[in-house]
């Protein structure tokens, strides 16, 4: 997890010496990120989460090479009968097949990749949108803040998952991209709020006042002094959103609003579309569900322990 501490350090180095005084350091002169890392290394919650996520990401990268079969090939389609629509486990197919005779194990392995793509892109989309709105509101303040925050309030006044359903229903041909877009949009107000809140807190902090007194223009103050110091809570939120995005993608598929093309499997899609077999062949749903639960738990554990480690109140 050195990647987490390094960007903070590099940014810190770039900030001029005056601004540095109040930025990332506390009384003992240890940066927030370094002290957080110090605690995280010994936190079992964080370690369990990190191991799950690392395994998930590695699987997502190498799956196509280690999967025993082509996930889209209907290898066991001949075994499919009206009495038994789901071919069971057999040599070479340890978990059996899905209702189209495709190898379940291969689909689960390759599914990690699509699941990661959907989760990461949806989170990045929400993050980017929230970043724009939050920077405008927190950076400019005044009337811009009022307008942006009213928009955010209205977006938050619609139950978020319901909004995702409504957005996804706008497209005549749902696809992976409409799923990502719908989930990304509902995350925008949350990211915007967070970022604005932490930038507002920065506006009157010593290092920003110092930079202003030195005659630094508004734009560099926002982008070089305020924004880098506001990303902590946003990263925590991003980790938690990744879990939510994967679960929400499953809910969209469950309602028939997901990606109909299942040649490239995704866990949420596999789970969402397994409903008709649940009472007779629950394993078709249980396999992708367990994958989703484990990965969502991994992101949640990591997010929660990061939140605690970065919270100055809980630093002892």
């Amino acid at each position: 997890m050195t990647s987490l501490t390094k960007p903070g350090d590099r940014k810190k180095a770039r900030i001029d010496s005056l601004a540095e005084a109040g930025a990332l350091s506390d009384e003992e002169g240890v940066s927030l990120w370094r002290s957080a890392w110090h605690r995280l290394r010994r936190d079992p919650v964080f370690l369990i989460g990190a191991v799950i996520i690392a395994a998930f990401v590695i699987l997502a990268v190498i799956a196509p090479w280690i999967a025993p079969h082509d996930p889209a090939a209907r290898l066991l389609i001949d075994q499919r009968t009206t009495q038994n629509p789901v071919p069971g486990p057999q040599p070479g197919f340890p978990l059996g097949a899905d209702d189209a005779g495709r190898d379940m194990l291969s689909r689960l392995m390759v599914g990690a990749r699509q699941t990661l793509i959907v989760g990461v892109l949806a989170t990045l989309g929400g993050f980017a949108g929230g970043m724009v709105l939050g920077t405008i509101a927190g950076g400019i303040g005044g009337w811009a803040d009022t307008i942006v925050m009213r928009i955010v309030d209205v977006m938050l006044s619609i139950p978020s998952l319901l909004m995702a359903f409504s957005l996804a229903a706008m497209f005549a041909r749902p696809s992976q991209w409409t799923v990502i877009l719908a989930i990304a949009i509902i995350q925008i107000p949350i990211f915007a709020r967070l970022l604005r809140g932490s930038m507002m807190a920065q506006r009157h902090s010593d290092h920003v006042l110092a930079a202003r007194a030195l005659g630094v223009r508004p734009a560099p103050i926002v982008f070089r002094h305020m924004l880098p110091n506001s990303v902590g809570p946003v990263i925590v939120q991003g980790t938690l959103v990744l879990a939510v995005a994967i679960i929400d993608a499953a809910a969209l598929s469950f309602l028939g609003l997901g990606n109909p093309d299942d040649t490239q499997p995704e866990w949420g899609q596999m789970l969402g579309r397994s409903q008709q077999y649940f009472n007779t062949h629950p394993e078709v749903a249980v396999y992708p569900a367990v994958c989703i639960i484990v990965v969502a738990l991994g992101f949640t554990l990591m997010g929660e322990s990061l939140r605690e480690a970065l919270d100055p109140k809980s630093r002892r």
């Binding site: 679960i247 809910a251 469950f254 789970l271 629950p282 639960i293 969502a296 949640t300």
Partner: peptide, 15 residues
């Protein structure tokens, strides 16, 4: 409670 958050609600309903 953390596992509770990670379980898709419709899957829990089916179980």
């Amino acid at each position: 409670s953390l596992i509770g958050v990670a379980v898709p609600v419709f899957f829990l309903a089916y179980v």
